[in-house]
């Protein structure tokens, strides 16, 4: 992971910063330069809520090399309470007990590391609420 590439994603990954279109109110995560709904180009910064429900999930058993030490791990798409959808790992749970519709909260976690000397990447993961 090249440091500049990691650095420019910090607002999204560390603080869940999103852009809310000043014209139509659409919330975009990550923020964009133009609203895909109305074409407007002005946004205000908003912070995503940290709760939502799981729309779908899968348990990855054949993982890419950066994630083999975490395998098996669950991934999922959650819809947050403001309607924004996110992709992330689902962690701190029994992966065989996951269900569509399950409530999750977002927590700040380590995502992947780049060997012993490289960048340690942090970001968000979903945690089922009953844990």
């Amino acid at each position: 992971m090249f440091p500049a590439r990691a650095h420019r994603e910090y607002p999204q990954r560390y603080r869940l910063e999103a852009g809310k279109c000043k014209k139509c109110g659409k919330i975009l995560f990550p923020k964009r330069l133009i609203c895909p709904e109305c074409g407007h180009r002005e946004f205000e910064k908003v912070i995503l809520p940290d709760a939502g429900k799981l729309l779908t999930f899968s348990v990855i058993r054949v993982a890419p090399s950066q994630f083999t030490d975490q395998s098996p791990y669950a991934i999922g798409i959650a819809e947050l309470t403001n309607g924004v959808r996110l992709f992330a790992q689902v962690t701190d749970c029994d992966v065989d007990a996951l269900k569509v519709g399950m409530e999750v909260r977002i927590e700040f976690r380590r995502i992947q590391t780049d060997g012993h000397h490289g960048v340690i990447s942090y970001g968000y993961k979903f945690v089922p609420k009953w844990y």
């Binding site: 994603e9 054949v62 890419p64 992709f87």
Partner: peptide, 20 residues
């Protein structure tokens, strides 16, 4: 940045569609 970074694979993405 928003799928692969978190551990997505292609079977994983289609698996999400399958579960849904």
């Amino acid at each position: 940045e928003y799928e692969v970074f978190h551990g997505a694979t292609f079977p994983g993405l289609y698996a999400l569609m399958a579960t849904a």
